[in-house]
């Protein structure tokens, strides 16, 4: 609040009301409902539910398939996050280096941000088409008999590649703006103190980029967990079958298609706890960044 805020009483309440109303109806109610129904076993025909305590959670922990999906999600998240960040950092550093065409490169490298994940998945389908997909052909030419949608590992590879392709631009934008906000004087001081460009990068630039990096780390983990849903759904053509899937996809499959509301709610709550932990971690970082400036 500003020091000299207005003292009118009714106006701020009126201003807050629409937002509060919407979040109560569409946030707190459903979130509470998910928590609540995670302790119940729903009758498959919708005739009622029985309180089962933590059974839904115990079922999850004991469910081999769920644990397998959790492990895959972890691996998927690690790969997507790592490659998106590394590739974006490399490109941002180079785009920050060059004098000619910096603006053009920026445009060329960031526009994919605006592509929806499922559309990215569609483009993946084209690129990895079984009979004539350019990437399939390329992989075949180096002796990898790539079969999207059939081979588990191949499908997973395509998911990672498409997800990285979609995520590099946003990381690139943040890294580049982080690099450009490093004061000129700091760079010049580093030029005088250190002859080697690589040395300057690791000693000065990289630590100054660390806040951006931490922020992006969380963003990318969240992206890998949630936003890739569309990419995956289209890549497997809506037929999960034996294909790899992530935890969010599993919630959708169990709850929306399988009608196991209790189990699906328990899965939702597990995800909520996961996101909660990540976001709180991130908030602390954002707070600290605000104090810098």
């Amino acid at each position: 609040m500003k020091r000299a805020g207005f003292t009118t009483r009714w106006l701020p309440i009126l201003l807050l009301l629409p937002q509060l109303l919407i979040i109560f109806v569409f946030f707190y109610w459903p979130a509470g409902h998910a928590l609540h129904s995670s302790f119940f076993l729903q009758d498959p025909f919708g005739f009622g539910s029985t309180f089962v305590g933590l059974d839904n959670y115990r079922d999850l922990a004991g469910n081999k398939e769920y644990m397998r999906i959790a492990r895959f999600t972890l691996l998927f998240t690690l790969l997507v996050t790592f490659f998106s960040l590394a590739f974006a950092l490399l490109l941002a550093v180079k785009a920050d280096n060059v004098l000619r065409g910096a603006k053009t490169y920026r445009t060329l490298l960031m526009w994919v941000y605006a592509i929806a994940p499922p559309v990215a998945g569609f483009i993946g389908l084209i690129m990895f088409d079984q009979s004539w997909g350019p990437l399939t052909r390329f992989l075949q030419s180096i002796g990898w008999d790539f079969t999207l949608g059939v081979n588990f590992r191949d499908t997973a590879t395509a998911m990672v590649i498409v997800s990285v392709w979609k995520q590099v631009p946003v990381n690139f934008i943040f890294f580049l703006s982080g690099l450009q906000s490093i004061p000129r004087s700091v760079r010049e001081a580093a030029m005088i103190d250190n002859r080697s460009a690589a040395g300057r990068f690791w000693d000065v630039t990289f630590p100054l980029l660390a806040p951006t990096g931490f922020f992006l780390l969380i963003t990318n983990i969240t992206y890998s967990l949630f936003e890739t849903f569309g990419t995956i759904d289209v890549l497997v053509k809506g037929e999960p079958g034996n294909n790899p899937m992530t935890l969010v996809y599993k919630v959708y499959v169990d709850g929306f298609r399988g009608n196991d509301l209790g189990g699906s709610s328990a899965q939702s709550v597990v995800l909520m706890v996961l996101v909660l932990a990540l976001t709180i971690f991130q908030f602390r970082l954002v707070e600290r960044r605000i104090h810098y400036t």
């Binding site: 998910a34 969010v248 709850g255 929306f256 699906s264 995800l271 996101v275 909660l276 709180i280």
Partner: peptide
């Protein structure tokens, strides 16, 4: 801000 729509998708659908 803590919970994206994806984790509360089913109850939201019900509402």
């Amino acid at each position: 801000l803590l919970l994206p729509l994806e984790v509360r998708i089913l109850p939201s659908y019900e509402v």
